[in-house]
Amino acid sequence: MRTSSLRKVFLGLLGLAVFILVWKLITDAKLVSPIFFPSPERTLASLIKGLSGGALLGQTLETVQRMLLGWLLASLVGIMLGALIGVSRRARAFIAPTLELLRPLPASAMIPIAIAFLGFSNPMVLVVIAFGALWPMLLATIHGFAAMEPRLYEVSAVLGLTRLQTIWKLALPSAMPMILASLRLGLTISLILAIVGEMLASRDGLGQSILLASRSFRSADLFAGIVILGAIGLVGSRLLSLAEARLLRWQATR
């Protein structure tokens, strides 16, 4: 068990090393102009410079904060709304067609509407993030609630649980595996929309920093930003995995 997980980490690091090596070989051979494609060393130098005293650290924090706020907003609204819709068959029948109409809309299509109402502001970006990330959480919660084992409703009736207790103690935990998977999806969407929003609304953050670096041919800065974005995604996903393992440890032995 222990050795196999060590081996997994080693293989992962090896893969990363090969990836960087190929990157270096391509840039060393000057297959692509360094104006567009910086070497790993230059990217690393820019990364270190940006994070130690440069603007990159602040921009990263801005973006992470935006992503998390939008994601939290979407999660809260999605799970609460999903629970309300999910517990009642009538509510599901009432609202499902409208949701199906709204769901396929790309979140970016909402940006002009959001700009019209909120201007080029931070709340605008937040609303766009929340709107885009809402769907997986909302739908997973609705489906999770609807898919609760019917026997458990009978158990709840016989034990005399209140409606609220049934939601809190039975429906929510039984929907939890689906909700947790959707939280991960929602986090990815939040990161994407935070970047897009920053680019479009010229808000401080990695999105704008990448855009400006690209426009002024600072390819090393551009890549440094992208590396950080990758790291944010990786860390977020790992943290959620840890939360998932803890919350779903009752599944681990299956």
């Binding site: 084992e149 026997r151 458990l152 009978e154 158990v155 016989v158 034990l159 005399g160 649980l161 207790q165 103690k169 039975l170 935990p173 039984s174 939890m176 779903l248 009752w250 599944q251």
Partner: peptide, 29 residues
């Protein structure tokens, strides 16, 4: 009036321990 169902696998809460499953009835009352 309590009822014991045949399909215990569906009647128990898989995310609660044995103690937690018994606790559910106590919480309810």
């Amino acid at each position: 009036v309590a009822i014991v169902f045949q399909d215990y696998g569906k009647a128990l809460l898989p995310w609660r321990t044995a103690a937690g499953n018994v606790s559910l009835a106590l919480e309810a009352r």
